[in-house]
Design a protein around this nucleic acid. Structure first.
Lengths: 200, 200, 200, 200
DNA sequence: GATGAATGAGGGTTCATTCAT
DNA sequence: GATGAATGAACCCTCATTCAT
């Protein structure tokens, strides 16, 4: 049954997300997948290859959900707002994705460097965002010269930093940043910030 | 002489930054510090205690540099611009600090949770930023109701996400985000973003 | 093959007996068992769990040999004499058992405390000894009111102390207590003592 | 001040008694003695030499208390009874002595072997016991041919085994052997045993 | 596809002891 | 007499990986 492969991949994502690449344990992944440890090597070859597979799957997942937003045919400001909201919510609901990225960057992108798939997944995203910005410019809503990549990094970064570092930030500022009130405040804050940043 | 202690702490910061808490090797720390492995335990008690010490020292370092900006007596917009610029530059020049924070958050803030010192270090920062915002409001420059904590998280997050995830971001967007041109572009982008976000 | 497990257990018994729990070396156990050190943890989980396993096996061994004495159907005095002789001989031939017990008591019975098995092994022994004493009473050979547990502790203790402390005793009394003549003298001494202790 | 030496010795006795020779920690001894670790080496030379010193002091202590019993001028049966009672009570109140002996025997008497002092301490004990037995024989109370050394080993062993192995024995027999009732029972049991063993 | 048994390298930590003062 | 700093060897244990079936 092909299920085993899937179960391993999902167990691995969970493990890598909770412990990082170095802290992840092959034994725990196998146990959680209800599979023999050997099968992990049968399907993926090595722990690191499995990590890359988990990372690629995570990228594919967020990009796929993004596509469902159907941003191409909407009012530019509404499209941007939807993207901001989606991105915030996605990170909020998928903290494991952030941990995976942190691990990969700790290792200087060693795994992702050789992944064609990951590169291909993102061309549409940039294209879509660029189109939104252009439409906004043409309609006189957005100022000229906004780089879609820089903008996307801001959209993502505003949520990412807050959520990824929630433990240290909550501690140093003496506030529980995961309390509902704080989360709502952050969502509004980000939307304002981004929309202000592009308006003409 | 207390030198050994200092050398261990600085070697540890380097090691933790490059490999994370789990990936850091006590042997390498000792070697780099030119000390016996035993001394690490003599002075710090355990690898985790050493990690906390490194983290606290890093926090102390950035906050200390921040204080030297002398933000209290400047024009509010100038003060904000200086803080934004300082923060971006600091992360750019101290990537190890970001990695340390990532590690700590991977472990859900386990170490920082019991550190009084880290909490105390940040009260002045929030106070300063709050004072700047108030002066800006009174002078009619800034809009009312901006939360200094949320704003600081944005200031930091804009640089942090870009720099901390530079490897994956460079790969998925097919651009070398560490090229000088890109870095300058980012700096300008962030400054605009933040100043726009608070203007009245 | 389960052989490895058995070899580890027997090597561990030897090592614990000769060096105590604290002084035992996991490396030596593995080497003596002709196994990889890792297998010790594969089969037993930890050094302490292995110690308990060795202790349980030792208890099981002496109790099993005891059962073969077939004490139930013999003349009460003959049965007692056989038990005394067996116990002395067993300790003489299995000094490792005494060392194991000493270690366990040095640690206040920490391991044995949670072993159901060890408790169960001893109910039959007490039952048997109680039956012997009762038959002796009914036949007018033994005095009433002898506690089988107290008696067994005496039977064991007479040999145990002599043999377990043979080095210090030999030294302080200036006599080689392990010389054949001394050993025979002790055996006779114990038998007399115990039989005198119960006679009516 | 000479006190330091004494404090170290007494701290060492406590530590060796609770953890055995191998499990004892030089650091803990120094801490408990309120002394610097280096002083331990200054006064005793090594951990093992300190162990021997503790052992010798313990032997000296019990023998000294024994001498105070003034057995020489008493009725033989009364003298014997007093010795039995004293020995039981001493082990009961000084469990650390038993642990020390166990440790020394685990190491095959390595330290005591070269101690003249320990040998000398015991000649009077044997002489005294021999004299008691002779007087008993002459008075027709005791049977002939009882070896004072074998008898002393019985007197000591009856208490030693019970007390030294109290944890395992309590567990395997399902009875708390340290409960007051059990202790009194044991004391009586031993006295009966020994007096029966020598009577003519 | 799947499994239990096995491995060697190396992980963090602790030890008794000594150096310099 | 007394001390804080330093050491190297060795401790128990864990790791990702592979073998034989």
């Amino acid at each position: 049954m092909k299920e085993t492969r899937t179960r391993i991949l999902s167990a691995a994502t969970h493990e890598f997300a909770h412990h990082g690449l170095g802290g992840a344990r092959v034994d725990r992944i196998a146990k959680r997948a209800g599979a023999n440890k050997r099968m992990l090597y049968y399907y993926f070859g090595s722990k690191e290859a499995l990590f890359l597979a988990a990372l690629e799957a995570s990228y594919a997942h967020i990009r796929s959900a993004e596509r469902d937003l159907d941003l191409e045919h909407r009012d530019p400001r509404e499209a941007l707002r939807r993207l901001v909201d989606f991105t915030w919510t996605y990170y909020l609901e998928h903290p494991e994705f952030m941990t995976l990225l942190n691990s990969e960057n700790l290792h200087k992108g060693r795994h992702v460097r050789h992944s064609k798939r990951v590169r291909e997944l993102h061309t549409p995203l940039v294209d879509t965002l660029r189109a939104i910005l252009r439409r906004g410019e043409r309609q006189g809503l957005f100022r000229r010269g906004v780089d879609p990549v820089q903008l996307y990094i801001s959209i993502a970064g505003e949520g990412y930093f807050y959520l990824s570092n929630r433990y240290t930030l909550s501690r140093i500022f003496g506030r529980d940043l995961m309390a509902p009130r704080e989360l709502h405040g952050r969502a509004r804050h980000i939307t304002d910030l981004v929309l202000n940043a592009v308006r003409s």
